[in-house]
Amino acid sequence: MNIFENLLTSLKRASEVSVSIMKPRDEGVITHNLMIFLFMIQNKGEIRTREISEHFGVTSGAATGIADKLENLGLIERNRSKIDRRVVTLVLSEKGKKLVQSKKREHVELYQYILHDFSEEELLNTIRMLNKISDRIDSYNNRGDI
């Protein structure tokens, strides 16, 4: 295996094991995938239903169903554009914000426990490298080249 294959294998494994420790904590009415979606809304501030379709690879009808479920649970709100009433954005409700903050705290505490023996320097270097990789991927996605 070359170094890039090793990198891809390591990133995939890190993602999979990360999900494996978070997923059981996110089950119940709000599944792990719905929590990921709520975190996505928090990070972006607002999203359109189309972005749900693209992110999860589902039809627009399924995306609307996801939004309906979260709205019925009081976790998101739909906002219509005043300029173009056809445009609807989804934002976290206060209840949704509280849930995301609670889950975020839970995840941070879990990682603090798991990584307690890593030095601050090791953690900072890991953060820098992961951010650098993410920035390069974003750059590639946005311009089509590096």
Rank of each mutant, 00 (worst) to 15 (best):
L70V: 12
A62P: 03
A62H: 12
E77D: 15
L34E: 15
I47D: 05
L34F: 07
S10Y: 04
K12Q: 10
V87S: 05
V19P: 03
E16C: 03
S20F: 02
G61D: 12
V58W: 08
I76R: 00
L92D: 07
R85I: 15
Q101F: 13
T31V: 09
Q101K: 10
I52D: 14
E94R: 12
A62E: 15
R13Y: 06
K104N: 10
K82N: 15
T49H: 05
L34Y: 15
Q42V: 05
R78P: 03
P24I: 00
V100C: 10
V58R: 08
L99C: 04
I36R: 09
T64F: 01
G28Q: 10
R105I: 01
L73D: 04
A63K: 02
N72H: 15
F37Q: 11
T59V: 06
G57S: 08
N33G: 03
M22H: 12
S93Q: 08
E71Y: 09
K44I: 00
R78E: 02
E51M: 13
L75I: 13
R25N: 12
S93E: 07
L73N: 13
R48V: 02
S10N: 12
S20P: 02
E54F: 01
E71K: 08
L90N: 03
G61P: 04
V100W: 13
E54H: 06
A14T: 00
V100L: 09
G74D: 11
R80S: 14
S60Y: 11
S20G: 06
S10M: 00
I21A: 04
I66L: 10
G96H: 11
G57L: 13
L99D: 04
M22V: 04
T59P: 05
L70A: 14
S53F: 01
S18T: 10
G61E: 15
K95E: 13
I66Y: 13
M40C: 03
D26P: 02
G65K: 01
I76Y: 09
E77W: 02
L90G: 06
I76H: 03
S53E: 09
E16V: 03
H55Y: 13
V58K: 07
R50H: 01
S20E: 12
L99R: 07
V87C: 00
K12I: 11
H55D: 05
R105Q: 13
T31N: 08
K23A: 11
E46Y: 14
E54N: 12
S20H: 00
I52V: 08
T89K: 15
G61T: 08
G96F: 04
V19E: 15
V19G: 03
K98C: 03
E71R: 08
E54M: 05
V91F: 07
N79A: 05
R105W: 06
M35F: 06
S53W: 02
L11C: 09
F56Y: 11
F37P: 05
A14E: 13
D68V: 02
L90A: 06
Q42H: 10
V17K: 08
S10R: 11
E51S: 07
H107D: 14
I41T: 14
H55R: 11
K98T: 07
G45V: 09
F37N: 09
A62K: 10
E16I: 00
V88Y: 02
H32G: 01
L99P: 03
L90R: 01
V87H: 02
K82H: 11
V87T: 10
D84E: 15
K69Y: 12
G61M: 13
E77N: 12
V91A: 05
G96V: 10
L34G: 01
I66S: 06
K69I: 00
V91L: 14
K98H: 14
S102E: 14
